[in-house]
Design a protein around this nucleic acid. Sequence first.
DNA 1: GTGAAAGCGCTAACAC
DNA 2: GTGTTAGCGCTTTCAC
Lengths: 344, 344
Amino acid sequence: MKDESVSAPRRSRRGSGAVTLHDVARLAGVAPITASRALNQPGQVSAEVLQRVSEAVAATGYVRNHQAGGLASARSRLVAALVPTVAGPMFASTVQALSDALAAEGYQLLLGQSGYGDSREDALLEAIIGRRPDGIVLTGTGHSALARQRLRAARIPVVETWDLGDEPIDMLVGFSHEAVGRAVAGFLHDRGYRRLAMLAGDDPRSMRRAEAFAAQAALLGLPTVPVLQVAAPTTLRSGRDGLTALLRSQPDCEAVFCSSDLLALGVITEAQARGLAVPRQLAVVGFGDQDFAADLHPALSTVRIDSQAMARQAVRFIVDRADGHEVSGQSVDIGFSIVGRQST
Amino acid sequence: MKDESVSAPRRSRRGSGAVTLHDVARLAGVAPITASRALNQPGQVSAEVLQRVSEAVAATGYVRNHQAGGLASARSRLVAALVPTVAGPMFASTVQALSDALAAEGYQLLLGQSGYGDSREDALLEAIIGRRPDGIVLTGTGHSALARQRLRAARIPVVETWDLGDEPIDMLVGFSHEAVGRAVAGFLHDRGYRRLAMLAGDDPRSMRRAEAFAAQAALLGLPTVPVLQVAAPTTLRSGRDGLTALLRSQPDCEAVFCSSDLLALGVITEAQARGLAVPRQLAVVGFGDQDFAADLHPALSTVRIDSQAMARQAVRFIVDRADGHEVSGQSVDIGFSIVGRQST
DNA sequence: GTGAAAGCGCTAACAC
DNA sequence: GTGTTAGCGCTTTCAC
């Protein structure tokens, strides 16, 4: 035991009162830096020191201060994700997958909701950059010039998701919405449907699926495809209302492609309420392949996006970069698949 | 202009390279602390200084470093939320509401998913405390002794949600699951249903609703209520499978109380697939009153929880505490209501 | 393998 | 209203 009594000049500033690494180090009889190593690089420290530090941590109930550590090391072990909303099933599963993948790597998730009117994204982004996260995961590629510039200036690894594009801010993992639209048109055409319609949220990505869907239908020689827009985020209610509106203008419609599974559920629900048989009188295709899609009655044909894989890839990009692997300009197309079920 | 050329001793440590408040202050010709005040307490600074600092911020593209600010001020402007999962609709809406309410107050949300097997909560909590958030929002009241002790030791404001209890760690906003179970039993009894059943996720809160539901039914003189457990988180699939199993053991069942709206949707779906009319042959009650509940066909009778209000109250608690209002031991019962719709 | 010194970028405390 | 000083708690750098 060393003599701990030192002259205690009145501290000009009160600390938080919490146990610090210095307290642990003193109790273990080592220098603070050694205690730090025992916790962060246990391999570089003798077994005996490791033991003493562990005991001191247990005895004091020490919990590391990541804020201080991050400031000193310039690694926050924090990753931010910006999604339009977490209320619908679409991005909730992405956020879940991100959170899980990050936790497995020792990172934590800072969540921001940008909404669908993009006005909030810039402000959110500034707040997020202020945290100095080790990475930022963005939804989509449609970011303001200001946002792109700030992100580049901040030199924080950025992964854009849920889309492809020629000029990613940094890294990218997504799929082509145009390809989805074309593939679904082809899918319905192959199954003999002729009078197609589209029910789409008014967000940019849904609109691009809609345009490609309509264009491809035209290429295939099908009648002009009416595209009905509903407000994003899409809901079961907007699916019901959407079908009602659609049937008014296109009573002979044979198949509807919906920009989300929730919208598709709304369409199926409304069809049932009207006594319209799905798929006999009306075929329905969703988007997202949420958990519930396969278990609906009739089971929903939809476009499967592997959002888990997308999230894992995004995390891999960021963690690799944090570990010093300087691979920039990475871009991955995770693709999609059409899952044909009973609704078509 | 002052002479900026000073002898530049080789720096023993490289900074992040980013623009700092010192850079801004130098450009504005003021001391760093003055620049800090201009940004944080604009009222305490002269108009001219405010102007010069603003220009310097714009010119340099300065973005504050919250990590450093939090370390110095012991206010991180970060609030952590721990939910079982964000994948289902139940907690996704809570997380959304929390995130929005926090953003409005200038806070950010750190999200942790504890899962339903509680093994992960303790580890997550340690990581979260390490960030020194200004508040922690927990789901439920069933936390380990270790967790409770750590949280108290950390002196971070804690709000437990989605439940009531006699011994909150700190603050509490929720409702009584027992009261819900009893109320739903009474509700169904009043409507003339006699042979009741319960389909419940195997998480503690759902189980408590189930027990109270069964007990109240017994008090009302109804036949013994079979309680079928399904794995949490509940899904549409588990609702369908649950009804199948239930009908096998209780073919004469008249009404089912489901521990989530998703489960209820599964029950309705399975009933439709079997040609069982809802509510004529089988009444269904859900829990949560998610967005989709009112728009199902038939519209779902359910228990409405105002998760927005719960989230806002939790944020209010935390912000008030951060602002120095020492109101501890607060506890609010936000109640619930039964929304009778077509499914009963 | 371990330690001393020097910051990371910011703000609380206390002047003036 | 503004500035000086001294940290917040940790880890980097460099030395032994």
